[in-house]
Design a protein around this nucleic acid. Sequence first.
RNA 1: GCCCGGGUGGCGAAAUGGCAGACGCAACGGACUUAAAAUCCGUUGUUCCGAAAGGAACGUGUGGGUUCGAGUCCCACCCCGGGUACCA
Length: 828
Amino acid sequence: MRPGATVLRHPKHAMPETPYTHEAIELKWSAAWAEDSSLYKAADDGSKPRYYVLEMLPYPSGVLHMGHVRNYSIGDTLARYMWMKGCDVLHPMGWDAFGLPAENAAIKRGLHPGDWTRSNIAHMKKQLQRLGFAYDWDREISTCEPEYYRWNQWIFLRMLERGLAYRKSSLVNWCPECATVLANEQVVEGCCWRHETTPVEQRELVQWFLRITAYADQLLDDMSQIEAGWPPQVLSMQRNWIGRSEGAEIDFTLKTTGEKLRVFTTRVDTIYGATCLILAPEHPVSRELCTGDLAAKLKAMVDDQGRKDPELLVKEGFDTGHTAVNPYSGEEIPVWVGNFVLWGYGTGAIMAVPAHDERDFEFCRKYGINVRPVIRPVDGVLDDGATMETAFCEYGVVEASGEWSGLDSAEARKRMAARAEEQGFGKAAITYRLKDWGVSRQRYWGTPIPVVHCKACGIVPVPEDQLPVVLPKEVEFTGKGKSPLAQLPSFVNTACPKCGADAQRETDTMDTFVDSSWYFLRYVDPKNESLPFDAATVKPWFGVDQYIGGVTHAILHLLYARFWCKFLRDIGLVAVDEPFKNLFTQGMVQLNGQTMSKSKGNIVDPDEMVIKYGADTSRLFTLFAGPPEKNIDWNESSVEGQYRFLSRLFRWVTRNMDGGEGSGETDAKALRKVHQTIRKITHDFDNRWHFNTSIAALMEMMNELLAAEPGLSPAVRKECAEKVTLMIAPFAPFAAEELWQLMGRTGPVFKQAWPKWSDELAMEEALEIPVQVNGKLRARVSVPHGSSEDEVKAAALADANVQAHTAGKTVVKAIYVQGKMLNLVVKG
RNA sequence: GCCCGGGUGGCGAAAUGGCAGACGCAACGGACUUAAAAUCCGUUGUUCCGAAAGGAACGUGUGGGUUCGAGUCCCACCCCGGGUACCA
């Protein structure tokens, strides 16, 4: 007997087995694994095919939640499988460590954001290790450390050199109470999140931007490179977000000032139907035209937070009293300000064509502005503007439009845009919904933007040898006034790197999405002190073979990362256009159909699960509950089922692992099931990740092995025990490792070769053919392998139930699907 | 409104156009136990016929269609979930 094995007598088999003690096993191995940093290291020597598995790095909020457990269980299972398939696996982990919660903790509880963050990281790292995730911790990065964020600064400066980072004035959310700028996420129902009764105002401030729009077309076009590996949903969301729209820009002339007022339209063919211009309230021309009483009206409209919620927005506007001239028709039309016109899209001014646009129609009817149809359906007549009840928005034939009358819409759009260009009052234009990425944050806990403001030299980049610009530690957090950095003279006051005169440091920090836009590259070369990473080191690992995370990042993070990858390619650091070859978006873990959240108080704590059932069981549950892309509901009974299964498997293996002499009558049956299972799971891994069906197959196999157990020969017992252990290894690494050791085998089980199946051993003894009569199942007949169609038919016709359903009728046709089924078509 | 998903037992779910409900949970019955827990064995879509063995009809949101054969493909509709939206 094996030393240390507890002897239990299984009632049926009376062989020694070891009980499954999840806690002892998992504590033992997680401690051992945490000590051996070589275990999960990528060799990176090209001796094996490389495979980069990446899961989205967590924000160190304090504790892991079940969503993390699911995300990382999927990635870890895949990583372990790829190891067993003989790949050189890169599987890193790190921390998205900058962000507001740290600063809030500082304001509320007087903790330094750095201390708060680092202690959270320490705790969460322990949790990850306790869960048994196979990360190469030597590559761990934490984005709040200067060793990391100095490269944010370095890359930022490269963008600055190329004009891709720039400053401009823009409207931002401003809380008068806090006297600071708020991120969009911090505006709750139009008010400040900390002052719930204080409406947020829009203020014009100078901010830093990254020119992502320069890559808009590439971001769209390169989707073809990842189409096969990304969920179509994510690509479509990005496509919508970028929102490329082809049309024309046309200048109207303000009658009073002679100033040009440019509008963007996709329907220049309808321009003879334009009955007014409408400006966004934020438009500078609005401010210019609205004097006297109108100025206050305008200010109220700009600050009206109701505009942020399209559900609640009622279209409102007012006439400025000014008019503008339509360059095509020479017509003079009124200029309005409207709350539904977006300053951030197109030119912030539109021509209203009520007859052919729903929104314009609603607005103009409300204010009694003319509705003038100029497009008729191809096979219809022009509507009557006075009586029409909805706008006609489709393409058609242009009418009542001077020389353009009679053209179809598409043709008119082209020709009229060309005319505008010829005569200098406009041009064909493409507009994107995508805006440049505002990265300025008036916050402390982020990467300092590495520039200096000098009276003489203007904006001066901090020289490379002075990077990183380190966040000062001694800062006071009041949550009031200017950003903490701006209140710190020792940080702000510096010498201009160019002329040496007194100058001021930039006090804005970078949006934290900057950190996660390139971290996956740093993992490959995490200790590099002269560059963000070495191009040659990184090259063989890119693009990431499999990226796994929540769909919540479909747009922001995944779009920014694609943008940065392209920029890094342009400066010669990356060789690929796209960072992630394959993306997998897993579903959420819910409780009773609801998202778990602190406010709902329905959090399932992973720690409790791990103590009660173990990490292996928790993993099995999250993988078994449903296909990984779907949401799953936490169900404790089902968790118990997984525990029972694992425990059954564990005990079966321990009492059947010894080997020896003798023969068994159920050997073939057991081996057949084992080989069928290897085939099934391998297929699941290689073609689709329906781990739920893989685990179901393992359960089915165990049920069969339990049934076959009394009749098994010792040698086959041992063989099955070994294969079972290897197959469970990617799913339940702790139990598998323990079993592997109990078997007296050496080396980590996840570095053993994934078992191979034999089609011969997996083959059933006889073919069982379902027999249908007129498409309805009437019998199953058993025939030897390789039986001919005639033989199958003969066997079918010999069956009593088939005879009962064919009696007195003629078999007019027989459809036989080789080895699958037989359908007899009868008449009469 | 538009764009994706999805609708299958009491529940989570399986099913390259070819045996619907694998696997698990729950429930019920049984074994073991002084008892309970744990464990093990069995039953479990609905209805009907039969003492039983067995058999029949119905059944994958609704209605149509294609097919020898449809949960799966096509058309129309209903419901649920997610994303997105005055984007001119």
